[in-house]
Simulated assay, not measured.
Amino acid sequence: MSYRPAPGLPHVDAMKPAVLTLAGPVTREETTGLCDGVRALLEATGAGVVVCDVGGLGPQGLGAVDLLARLELAARRAGGRIRLRDPDPALRALLHLVGLRFELEGQPEQREPPLGVEEEVEPGEPAV
Rank of each mutant, 00 (worst) to 15 (best):
L9C: 05
L9M: 09
L9D: 11
L9P: 01
L9V: 08
L9E: 12
L9S: 12
P10H: 06
P10L: 13
P10C: 11
P10T: 06
P10K: 09
H11D: 08
H11T: 09
H11G: 01
H11Q: 09
H11R: 10
H11L: 13
H11P: 00
H11S: 08
H11E: 10
V12I: 15
V12S: 06
V12R: 09
V12K: 05
V12G: 00
V12T: 09
V12N: 04
D13C: 03
D13K: 09
D13V: 12
D13M: 07
D13S: 08
A14K: 01
A14R: 10
A14G: 05
A14Q: 05
A14F: 10
A14M: 07
M15I: 07
M15S: 14
M15Y: 08
M15D: 10
K16M: 05
K16C: 01
P17K: 08
P17Y: 09
P17T: 08
P17V: 08
P17H: 09
A18V: 10
V19F: 03
V19A: 03
V19D: 03
V19E: 09
V19L: 12
L20F: 13
L20Y: 12
L20G: 12
L20K: 07
L20A: 13
T21P: 02
T21R: 15
L22F: 10
L22N: 06
A23V: 13
A23E: 15
A23Y: 02
A23N: 07
A23G: 03
G24Y: 02
G24W: 04
G24E: 05
G24S: 04
P25Y: 03
P25T: 06
P25F: 08
P25S: 09
P25H: 08
P25W: 04
V26K: 12
V26S: 11
V26L: 15
V26H: 11
T27S: 15
T27F: 06
T27P: 04
T27W: 05
T27C: 05
T27K: 09
R28I: 15
R28L: 15
R28F: 14
E29G: 00
E29N: 03
E29M: 07
E29F: 07
E29W: 06
E29A: 14
E29I: 06
E29C: 00
E30S: 02
E30A: 07
E30V: 01
E30I: 00
E30W: 00
E30K: 06
E30H: 02
T31N: 02
T31W: 03
T31Y: 02
T31Q: 14
T32K: 11
T32E: 15
T32I: 12
T32P: 01
G33D: 13
G33V: 14
G33I: 07
L34Y: 13
L34K: 12
L34T: 04
C35G: 00
C35H: 00
C35W: 00
C35T: 05
D36W: 04
D36H: 07
D36N: 13
D36L: 14
D36T: 10
G37A: 15
G37H: 12
G37Q: 15
G37S: 15
V38R: 03
V38W: 06
V38D: 02
V38N: 03
V38S: 04
R39L: 01
R39S: 12
R39V: 11
A40C: 01
A40W: 04
A40Y: 00
A40I: 00
A40E: 11
A40R: 12
L41I: 05
L41Y: 06
L41S: 07
L41T: 00
L41F: 02
L42P: 01
L42F: 06
L42D: 03
L42G: 01
L42E: 03
L42I: 06
